[in-house]
Computed example of a mutant assay.
Amino acid sequence: MFKAICTDIDGTLLNKDRELSKRTVDIFKHVKDDVAIILASSRMPAAMRHLQQTLDIVNQPLICYNGGFIISQRHEIKILDSVKIPFSLCEYIAKWSDNKNLHAGFYLEDNWFAPSRDQWTEREINNTKVQASILSGLELMESWKSQENGAHKIMCMGEPSLIDDLISELKSMDAPLHLYRSKDTYLEIAPLEISKASALNQLLRTELNIEMKDVIAFGDNYNDIEMLKAVGCGVAVGNAKEEVKNVADEVTLPAKEDGVAVTLEKYFG
């Protein structure tokens, strides 16, 4: 039997209303005392903790920013790893976005800085239930400059052609970045060296004394592929990208039909 469950959130765990269904909550509460339950997402910690509260797993670890920020919460909050985009690249993207009028949000630990309270910011507030600090990218870089702070994630949102241009620009620079396009209007930028798989492996080894083969994991998108391949049982939800389904050990029902809950009921009763 599995010793840990690791699941993506958006497109995997949440229903069509972007919430946790009763069926999902019930099965997680049923198994939470017997297995470790790890949420792994591109979200910031605050956008994951309210889900942990609903599932009654607030003492369980979090893999945030696709593996760039790993938090243990067993007895006290402890940062296990923190990998950031270097300040110089943050500054470049801030200036480029300001010049082209592209919305660029910067995330550092539990802080989200958005350039204005526009439609993009409102949508993210609605999706994640977290409030942004409104500060232009240039102002933020000025405040970060002395410490050369970096970002765990940069989220660029806007016209597809602008996103295309930024991707081309960063690729031409050979910037050491993951450029993950979740929609044609969304670009998530993260450090190249991180992944959910490596973060999960580190977390299991250092905190939980569990092996990857003893984990069942769920996902739907390209950033879940490595994780699904690395664990004992990788499960793609029915709405997953074809490439994700191709590497998965199993394919379950879509997220909006409680695919994660259905599979957990099968294994844990």
Rank of each mutant, 00 (worst) to 15 (best):
I225C: 13
A230E: 13
K129A: 13
E169C: 03
L200Y: 08
V260T: 09
E242I: 07
I194A: 03
S143H: 11
M44F: 07
L166R: 04
N126W: 10
E159L: 10
K145R: 14
N59I: 06
R18I: 12
L138V: 12
K229Q: 08
H178P: 05
K171V: 09
E226Q: 12
P115E: 07
L203S: 02
K229I: 10
I189F: 05
K266L: 13
A94G: 04
I125K: 14
F106S: 02
G67D: 05
F87S: 08
R43A: 04
V35E: 02
D164I: 01
D220M: 08
L228M: 04
Q202P: 01
E139A: 15
E207D: 11
T185D: 07
D118R: 08
D249G: 12
N99E: 14
R74S: 10
T12N: 13
L253S: 04
W112S: 01
I189C: 03
V244D: 10
H103T: 11
R18E: 15
C6V: 14
A175N: 02
N15S: 01
K245W: 06
A151L: 05
D184E: 14
Y222W: 03
N246C: 07
A248K: 11
A199G: 04
Y267V: 09
G150P: 03
G158H: 06
M155E: 00
A248Q: 10
E169H: 13
A190L: 10
H178V: 12
V35I: 15
S195H: 08
E19A: 11
L80M: 13
S195P: 05
N15Q: 07
I125S: 09
K245C: 14
T12D: 04
C6Y: 00
I37S: 11
F2D: 04
M48A: 15
V247F: 09
A40G: 03
M48S: 12
P176F: 00
K213T: 06
L140G: 11
R74N: 06
K241F: 10
S133L: 14
